[in-house]
Each structure stands twice: as C-alpha cells, then as structure tokens.
C-alpha cells in the first residue's frame, strides 16, 4: 500500500508539473492571440492603446461600428471593445482593466441594449481563462463571473474542460481594432420563433452603471448612448424596452449624455444590411458607422 501511494503521489506530482507547463504555454498563446474574443482582454491589459474613442457594448457594438471609419472621420484612434454576448458587468470589467493600463479616452460610446443589465450567462467563458495566471487579473474578473475552484487552481483544467480547439482553430474572426465586419447575408426571419425573453435588470449591475457614469463624468470623459439598429419587424417583440429606456433617459439627463437612437432609421427596414434581426452585416455596419460619425460631429462630442 505504501509503495502504491508513494508511486501514485510521484506520478501525480509529475503530471501536475507537466500540466503547469502546458498551462503556461497555452496561456502565452492566448495572451498573444488576435482572435476574438481574446483580443478584447489582451488589449485591455496592455498599455499603449491610447484610444481617443472607446466603444463599449455587446455584439451589437463589436460588429456594428467600424473603427477605421471613425478614425478617418475624426483623425483619431478608435478601439472597439464590444464583447459578444456580454452584459454590462463584463463590459465594465473590460473597461476597468483598460483604464488601469491606459489613459482616459476622449469619447466613450456606450451601446445600450435590452439585455444589458441582466447577469451575463456563461457565454464563451474561455475568453477569461488566459487571465488566470495573474491573481490580480483573475480577481478583477471574478466579481462579474463565477468560476469553479478547479477552473481557478488546477492547471489545465479550465482549458481541457472547455476544449482547446477554441485556442488554435483559426475560424474565429481576426479583428481590426476590435471590429470585424460580418460578410454574411440575411436569412429567413421567422417571427414566431423570435419572441424575446424578458431580461430582468439586476439591481447591482444598474448601480455599477450609475457609478461608472458618475466616475467617467467626473473625469471629464464625453459619453454618448447609442441604440443600434434592429430589424423593424423584430423590434416590437422586445419586451422590456420601455422600462429600460426610462432609466437610460434619466441617466442621460442627470449626466448630460446624448442619446443616438437608430431604431427608427430607414436601415431597419433594409434586410440587405442585416444578417439576422439583431445584427448588421458588413454593408450595414459600414453604413451605420458613417452615420454615427456624422451624428457625433453634429453633437460636437469630439
């Protein structure tokens, strides 16, 4: 029995050392990856980004607003930190990491969405895994999303349990300053299957938003709320719009933040600009990015 336990222990020790080395190698690979979604976190933890315009939001930010178009319109440096599938909790964690390492932007574009203030489910959780080697980074992510102890402390467990293909497969988009235009076309829209759940706004996340707005406002950062285009037949199926926009309008007045609403823009009737009811394709994104640049100029935000 003694011999068995000693040998098993020795094997486990060797296996753990091997796993730790593999963990470091995979983490290094992910830390230097430009694939979505690692790009967003990798750039948030790097200094030297020096964005003049910081775009914040979920997928309706990251695939809708082209930094190249905004850069040429303002001769500025725009970075799109829109996170696919993310609520405000993840977006704020990303922004805070960015601000820890970078100066304040001149303009903060915040796309507001109807799922914004609910707790983000476990969507693409692997985007955080390569941050775990640094306790400081790990802890900055923890409050917004929970990970098991095995994911936190067992080397390689989090990668293995989620599948390593995601780190090496080149299929996910390579981003340009956080943006990738979607070269996709409109599919059939089935009204009956597109009814939305009622996203419950979480009080703690709303409070975080309020604190975030107050802090950015006190730092003198210009802000703008943007409601991205939504396919017109889909829009009425969204359930909690009124209650959410009532609060957003209150914030707008309190912190003097203009609102740009594209939900009644003619683009919302044009299916050639969408690839699904909630997302513009590349053609639509470029059109709305030019429109956004004009609207920002009119509002004299930059």
């Amino acid at each position: 029995m003694r011999k068995f336990i000693i040998r098993t222990f020795a094997f486990v020790a060797m296996a753990t050392a091997m796993m730790a080395l593999l963990d470091i190698a995979i983490t290094y690979q992910a830390q230097h990856s430009d694939l979505r979604p690692y790009w967003k976190w990798n750039h948030a933890i790097r200094s030297g980004n020096d964005a003049d315009i910081y775009i914040m939001g979920n997928s309706r930010a990251w695939c809708h607003f082209s930094p190249a178009i905004l850069d040429s319109a303002f001769d500025a440096n725009t970075m799109n930190f829109g996170l696919d599938g993310a609520g405000f909790d993840w977006q704020l964690a990303n922004y805070n990491l960015y601000r820890n390492n970078n100066p304040k932007p001149k303009l903060l574009i915040m796309t507001i969405d109807y799922s914004e203030f609910s707790i983000t489910a476990g969507y693409e959780r692997h985007q955080f895994f390569h941050l775990f080697l640094s306790p400081e980074l790990r802890d900055s992510v923890f409050p917004v999303h929970h990970f098991s102890w095995a994911e936190r402390y067992l080397p390689m467990y989090r990668y293995a349990n989620y599948g390593l293909d995601k780190y090496f497969d080149k299929k996910p988009y390579t981003l340009y300053k956080g943006y990738a235009g979607q070269d996709r076309h409109w599919g059939e829209f089935d009204n009956t299957t597109s009814t939305n759940p009622r996203y419950a706004a979480n009080g703690q996340i709303m409070e975080k938003m309020e604190r975030h707005l107050a802090k950015a406002s006190s730092e003198g950062i210009n802000m703008v709320f943007v409601h991205a285009p939504t396919y017109s037949r889909y829009y009425p199926t969204i359930k909690n719009l009124d209650s959410m926009w009532t609060i957003v309008h209150q914030w707008s007045e309190k912190y003097d933040i203009p609102i740009i609403d594209y939900t009644s823009d003619p683009i919302c009737d044009d299916t050639s600009c969408f690839y699904n009811p909630r997302h513009l394709n590349k053609k639509g994104a470029e059109r709305i990015s030019r429109q956004l640049a004009n609207d920002i100029k009119e509002l004299n935000l930059l």
């Binding site: 091997m18 293995a160 599948g163 293909d165």
Partner: peptide, 16 residues
C-alpha cells in the same frame, strides 16, 4: 502514462 494524460487534457473537446 504521461503522454496519455497529456493527450486526454489536450484533446478533450470540452463537450462533457
């Protein structure tokens, strides 16, 4: 044994 273990970890598709 270690090679098998590495294969198990690296080739786990994560589908549970």
């Amino acid at each position: 044994y270690l090679a098998l273990l590495a294969a198990i970890v690296l080739r786990n598709p994560g589908t549970g």
